[in-house]
């Protein structure tokens, strides 16, 4: 039911990440209206104050904007959304590098492994296409 939260980072920061991800992956499409604070809070399993704080931050960054009496909306600014996807993507890549480096791989080894993974994937798809 509730979103899960990690230690050490304030909850509202984690909520900001979750909402950004949902905007980037289309769960909250561009230009659409976000659910009300209360609804989001119930969904997230958090205090409405906390949710409010997260939304205020997102508003400050411009990813969402509020229309008086209508609620909050996701931005339609495609450039901003593109930037968001890129920055979220970079976070994921950084996380990937961090965990693989923790396994003892160097950065070059990681890049090589990724290319190898991609090649293997493409080859497998060719085989499948050949069979059908």
């Amino acid at each position: 039911m509730a979103w899960t939260y990690k230690a050490g980072i304030p909850i509202y920061t984690q909520i900001i990440s979750i909402i950004k991800t949902r905007i980037a992956n289309g769960t909250y499409p561009a230009g659409t209206r976000l659910p009300a604070v209360r609804e989001l809070a119930v969904d997230a399993g958090v205090n409405p104050n906390t949710m409010q704080r997260a939304l205020a931050e997102l508003e400050r960054s411009g990813i969402i904007y509020s229309v008086r009496t209508s609620g909050r909306f996701v931005t339609e600014d495609t450039a901003m959304l593109g930037d968001l996807r890129k920055s979220l993507g970079r976070e994921q890549i950084a996380a990937l590098f961090a965990s693989l480096q923790a396994l003892g791989m160097t950065e070059d080894e990681i890049v090589a492994a990724v290319q190898e993974w991609r090649r293997a994937g493409m080859a497998e798809r060719e085989v499948q296409d050949g069979n059908t």
Binding site: M1, A2, R38, A41, V42, G45, V46, N47, P48
Partner: peptide, 12 residues
């Protein structure tokens, strides 16, 4: 438990 917490939040 979920229901109770959701009720508390939504009645905020």
């Amino acid at each position: 438990r979920d229901y109770i917490l959701r009720t508390i939040i939504s009645n905020y």
